[in-house]
Write a protein that binds this DNA or RNA. Structure first.
Length: 503
RNA sequence: GAUCUCGUAGCUCAGCUGGCAGAGCAUCUGACUUUUAAUCAGAGGGUCCUGGGUUCGAUUCCCAGCGAGAUCACCA
């Protein structure tokens, strides 16, 4: 086994986990991109380090593949180069026998092209940098790109993401895209002069969204605290405080079901800009997403499933009523709760008695419209009942100034002209309390400190939230949120524990 | 939370109607100094997810549990 190899290596006087730095001076992909046969002389004394990903022994020589952060490159080791003297044990024992797949090695050598035409590093000196003790799955690929023995079990991949990242091609790229998405967005906002802030994750009142929270307890205060389901109210308090643009990119926590689009913790971006409204925010959203797609994928066009999606603005805008009329043929703008209930019946949509007018409209939209919105589309002007934190529509009775952006049949962003009238806000919270009494367990709780802040005055403000995980899913063409989270939530692994309970 | 499907070697998977547990890769031994899914010769490797039941006999059939995936419900 590998532990025996470890001992054998130490017995040879070689430290399998050396301390010294190994300074690389190039990467695999750089060599492959820039190598030209008539300039081979420029590709000498190159130092690379990484994991050994394949081994093809040829007796007194060997081909192998080294994987570094940029990809893989073939390396060629010859016994008489590695061991110029009489003692051939370094090659015979260390390399041939005790070097295993996924061990970390450092090499120095020059580049050449083999008879088969592959750009290869001819190794002149070799160092073991770190020994692995576990056998890793070996993924092989043939000339046509067919993959064999891939490490595919999703459970294993998510539980041992380090293995997934190492052996499965392309997995690391997804997370590079994720990181770039966030930094592109951050730099877009920073250039506008808006301030990145951090607000509490532990909150005494979980406000700003409709969802079940995680509950915890603070010992010395002896109070319950909730992991935030949203940060909206805190960010608006900062607008009250005088910043004219604040945003936060961070984790939210919702104690709800898990599936391929939901993880208990997820990353959201929320931004609030003073003296703006939702019309302006739609333009800003277009520019932002265009810039992000351009920066992450080098194009505004991405492929998601069977659809090609273009993030280039401007995006079509439809009101909620228009969208429903377009996809069902019914004009619901004048319908009351009873008529809507009948319509839902006719459309075979299940509803519950606790649902009010807004919730019914939401149901129709979810059932009949949402999945059809493939290209980025703004849906605007929502019923007031569903959105207690948005400002009433400037001209349309019963509506609020809100938009959601749908892409590939999924909501990706949500925004309002923020409600800054403290009296109206208090009434809206009271409406929510009534909904709660009716049995709507998602209704929002009253937040007195937030109301107090509004009473001190908040400028007209536009706010926007974007689900970062889902945006990354779109940009990378992944169908599940687990594919864009390093460590998606899983049930704890069952370990072999001794039974010690005796009653 | 509901329904369906799956769980066999380190990885990918066969295993028929119930009859001694299988393959490829990986690992180990040997050969091979430009191979590339390297090749050739040999070897080792299993709590068939767990616990019950039916049976002469269960990886296979039945029940329960655990874990995962898909679909749905809810949400972002």
């Amino acid at each position: 086994m590998r532990r025996e190899s470890l001992k054998a290596i130490r017995d040879m006087g070689i430290e399998p986990y050396p301390h010294e730095a190994f300074e690389v001076n190039t990467f695999s992909a750089d060599i492959k991109e820039s190598f030209e046969d008539d300039k081979a002389g420029e590709f000498e004394n190159l130092k690379l380090a990484g994991r050994l990903m394949s081994k093809r022994g040829k007796g007194k020589a060997m081909f192998a593949e080294l994987q570094d952060k940029k990809g893989r490159i073939q390396i060629y080791l010859r016994r008489d180069d590695i061991c110029p003297g009489e003692d051939k044990s370094l090659y015979n024992l260390l390399i041939k026998r005790h070097l295993h797949l996924c061990d970390f090695i450092g090499i120095e050598g020059f580049v050449f092209r083999t008879g088969m035409g592959e750009i290869t590093v001819h190794v002149q000196s070799f160092k073991l940098l770190s020994k692995t003790l576990r056998t890793l799955p070996v993924v092989k690929k043939d000339a046509e790109g067919n993959i064999y023995d891939a490490f595919t079990d999703p459970e294993q991949r998510y539980r041992m993401r380090y293995v997934d990242l190492t052996v499965n091609e392309g997995v690391r790229d997804v997370f590079v895209a994720r990181s770039r998405t966030i930094s592109a967005m951050r730099s877009f906002f920073d250039k506008k002069g808006w301030l990145e802030v951090e607000t509490p994750i532990l909150q005494p009142i979980h406000g700003g969204a409709a969802a079940r929270p995680f509950k915890t307890h603070h010992h010395s205060l002896d109070i319950p605290l909730y992991l935030r389901i949203a940060n909206e109210l805190y960010l608006k308090k900062l607008i009250v405080g005088g910043y004219d643009g604040v945003y936060e990119i961070g984790k939210m926590f919702r104690n709800e079901g898990m599936d391929r689009t939901h993880n208990p913790e997820f990353t959201s971006m929320e931004i609030y800009v003073a003296y703006r409204d939702y019309q302006w925010m739609m333009e800003m959203t277009e520019q932002c997403l265009e810039a992000v797609a351009e920066s992450v994928m080098s194009t505004t066009k991405v492929t998601a499933g069977d659809n090609e999606i273009d993030f280039k603005g401007p995006y079509p805008r439809l009101t909620m009523y228009e969208a429903i009329e377009k996809h069902t043929g019914f004009d619901i703008s004048e319908m009351g709760e009873e008529d809507l209930r009948k319509l839902c019946d006719k459309l075979h949509i299940e509803v519950e008695p606790s649902m009010g007018r807004g919730k019914l409209i939401d149901e129709i939209f979810d059932e009949k419209v949402e999945r059809n919105l493939i290209q980025p589309t703004f849906i605007t002007d929502y019923p007031i009942e569903m959105t207690p934190l948005a400002k009433k529509h400037r001209s349309k009775e019963g509506l609020v100034e809100r938009f959601e952006l749908f892409v590939n049949g999924k909501e990706i962003a949500n925004a309002y002209t923020e409600l800054n009238d403290p009296i109206d806000q208090r009434e809206r919270f009271e409406e929510q309390l009534k909904l709660a009494e009716r049995g709507d367990d998602e209704a929002m709780a009253m937040d007195e400190d937030f109301l107090r802040a509004l009473e001190f005055g908040m400028p007209p403000t536009a706010g926007l939230g974007i689900g970062i995980d889902r945006l990354v899913m779109l940009l990378t063409g992944k169908k599940s949120i687990q594919e864009v989270l390093f460590f998606p939530q899983m049930r704890p692994e069952k370990r072999d524990t001794e039974e010690e309970k005796e009653d």
